[in-house]
């Protein structure tokens, strides 16, 4: 299991577009991917879960990948968040 603590940088946070792009990207990996935020654990392959989490600009979150290709999943996921989903 690998993980990284990140801060959501884009103004709108995990709204519809970033959430679906992110969930889609994580969906390609065989490992489990989830996000710890505000004491809850969210399935990061699910757009709906990500939106429900209400992660805003400035929110501190932990991205956790567990299973096959966990390193690659973490690297790609962390980069997407750090880049603010290209917004």
């Amino acid at each position: 299991m690998v993980s990284k603590v990140l801060t959501v940088p884009n103004a709108q946070g995990f709204h519809m577009r970033p959430a679906s792009v992110f969930a889609g990207a994580m969906g390609k990996y065989p490992c489990n991917v989830f996000i710890n935020f505000n004491g809850n654990k969210y399935n990061a392959k699910s757009t709906l879960n990500l939106i429900a989490a209400c992660m805003k600009c400035g929110s501190e979150i932990e991205l956790v990948c567990d299973g096959d290709q966990e390193e690659a999943a973490l690297a790609e996921g962390a980069k997407m968040i750090e880049d603010g989903f290209g917004e």
């Binding site: 519809m16 577009r17 679906s20 969930a23 889609g24 399935n43 392959k45 699910s46 757009t47 879960n49």
Partner: peptide, 15 residues
């Protein structure tokens, strides 16, 4: 695009 977002909602792996 927003309409097409409905497809990603219904295909949500968690759902």
């Amino acid at each position: 695009e927003i309409m097409l977002g409905h497809i990603s909602i219904v295909n949500d792996p968690f759902l």
